[in-house]
Simulated assay, not measured.
Amino acid sequence: MSQPFSQRLRQLYRLTPPLARSVASENLKRLTWLALIGVPFGLLHILAFSLNLQGTRAEFDGWRHGIIATHAVVALLLACIGLLAWYARRRTEPAPLLYCEALGTGAAGVLLAFGLTITFFDQQVTSSITPFLMGCVAAALILLLRPLAAATLYVGAFVAFELAMELAQPDPQMRLSNQMGGLTICGIGILLSLILWSGNLRNLRQRQHLRRQRKELEEKNRQLEYLAGHDPLTGLFNRRQFDQLVKQELARCDRQPMPVSLLMIDLDHFKFINDRYGHPLGDEVIRHTANLLRKHTRSTDSVARLGGEEFLLLLPDSAVPQAMAIAEKLRKLLEETPLPMKDGLLYLTASFGIATLESGVSGTYERLYATADQALYRAKASGRNRVEVMDAAPCGTLE
């Protein structure tokens, strides 16, 4: 279903800040190229008319000098506009929108004035108004002008053109023909500017839409990558990601011998907590424990949620004494940091099982995991809220 005309008209005038910034950026780029092409073009004309290669008669010297002066002034103005546009593009902070729009409108005015002035001087040797046509078309093609600004410029150019013809064209018939031609040219300029503004605006909106979609897709991909490797309840590594980290660490230990320990943690009496207080509080207990483990472990350690109330810690470059010290610190921290509830405080404890591979001793992740599980079982069987350690050096195979 097509949009109402009034809505389409509002879209031509109303620009969102990002869209206005895109229009300004596009105009600055076009102004830079306009200066790079227009200035040499003007200098070539100045050179050609200065050398007087066609040997024009002396009575046409006023026409020739007028053309040279016009090209010189326009080349200078385009050079200044191009430098200002180039500077605005190189700024670390975006140039003000009003500044960018003023540059674009000023450049369009220069092109219109250029075509008008050349046509004014050309009336001394010809009745052609082609330069005015070229200036009007160039302003519409090169620059993105707001419809109101374009209409104002072209109406002003038409009024100036009518006055110029009154002064420069003595023949009444030719003057009337040129004036009607000027009216047609300005009408074409407004229409062409409006069509190109609308088309470019539509393209810029589509680009913005595509950029937004691409950013949303990238964000969703990042979220999916995060979810693929993290536990959604706690934000800790999940079992899949943790397994990869352990295998990488064991491979590194094979290349550069150093001890490594795996710490398995199981909250005591967690089923009782769920049964008595409900699963929402059970989730709070899991998050509370995860936050303590995350905040009070080393930056080189990796923490994961194994599932339910069980957690895993990978402790690189940690032999038995270091692993025992870390586990005991975490055990006391959990015991001494109760979880606030509506009816008071909930005190928690956990059992810890440690499996260690000493420096230079090779072992598999499966063996390390099974040994930590055995140590945890021993801690549970020995009364809970304690730390047990076992050597994971292979004495057989568990794979």
Rank of each mutant, 00 (worst) to 15 (best):
S6C: 13
Q7D: 13
Y13T: 14
P18G: 03
T32E: 12
W33L: 06
L51S: 10
G55I: 04
G62W: 13
I68N: 01
C80M: 15
R89Y: 09
R90V: 12
P94A: 15
L97C: 10
A102K: 10
L103T: 02
I118W: 00
T119G: 07
F120V: 00
F120G: 00
R146T: 04
L148V: 10
A150Y: 01
Y154R: 05
A157Q: 00
A157V: 00
V159H: 10
L163W: 13
M165Q: 08
T184W: 15
C186K: 01
I195S: 13
R202W: 13
Q208K: 13
H209G: 13
N221Q: 12
R222D: 08
L224W: 06
E225K: 07
L236C: 08
R239M: 10
F242G: 02
P257V: 06
D266P: 02
F270P: 04
Y277P: 00
G278I: 08
I286M: 04
R287D: 04
R287E: 11
F311E: 00
D317E: 14
I326P: 14
L334I: 01
E336V: 01
E336L: 02
L339E: 04
P340F: 02
L348G: 01
T364P: 10
E366V: 08
K380V: 03
G383P: 05
A393C: 09
P394W: 12
T397D: 14
